[in-house]
Design a protein around this nucleic acid. Structure first.
Length: 196
DNA sequence: CCGCCGATCTTT
DNA sequence: AAGATCGGCGGG
């Protein structure tokens, strides 16, 4: 496989709906760990009732309104960290939630970070599992993925999925539940459990 | 495999 | 009071 290169700022400076499907197959890297993205969701700002940014900027969502190529990390249900890639132009809220990934490197470290995982596909098959396996938490909110200033980055090695990513409604939301803004690799065992 | 439910805390 | 989730439990 080709040598890995970091995705440039220009990659992120586009609408999340455009960036999201292109993140399928990219690699998230942190602290000796590496995983290939197999599921994402796009969130926009003031026109997206499901977005944390829907009601305008707050201390929590400040990063979503900032420059693209940074990480927006939030606490879900009071106990799980989830990570988004901030997209779009500076000042306009937009992000892509990293929902699931296939572990590629540093799997022993991931297993120590997630002792409950019985199989490799339990390591990062969900947004909070992905963060736990990769060691991403509140310290990484606002991290610059292009500069890799806190060790987290996103790269590509030229790999393209054998099949086109499929779409579906976003998981776990009640507002704007009809928008097909989730992308995933059909048949990949690391994709999170299907919604009801 | 599937469905139910509690955990835990920030934001509204 | 709800929420961009997860894992343990019980049943099929």
């Amino acid at each position: 496989m080709a040598r890995r290169r970091r995705l440039p700022r220009s990659f992120y400076r586009r609408d999340p709906l455009e960036v999201a499907p292109e993140l399928i197959g990219a690699l998230v890297e942190h602290d000796g760990r590496r995983a290939r993205v197999v599921e994402v969701e796009a969130y926009r700002g003031t026109d997206d009732p499901a977005s944390h940014a829907y009601r305008g900027p707050t201390p929590r969502t400040a990063v979503m309104f900032g420059p693209p190529g940074h990480l927006y990390v939030y606490l879900s249900y009071g106990m799980h960290w989830c990570a988004n890639v901030v997209c779009g132009v500076d000042g306009v809220a937009g992000a892509v939630l990293l929902r699931a990934a296939a572990p590629e490197h540093g799997i022993e470290v991931m297993r120590r970070a997630r002792p409950v995982a019985r199989r490799d596909r339990d390591l990062a098959s969900g947004p909070a599992k992905l963060c736990q396996a990769m060691g991403i938490d509140r310290r990484h909110d606002g991290a610059d993925l292009v500069a890799a200033d806190r060790g987290v980055t996103v790269t590509t090695d030229g790999w393209t999925p054998p099949v086109a990513p499929a779409t579906s409604p976003r998981i776990g939301i009640s507002a704007a539940a009809d928008r097909p803004w989730r992308w995933y690799l059909p048949g990949d065992p690391n994709v999170s459990a299907r919604p009801r």
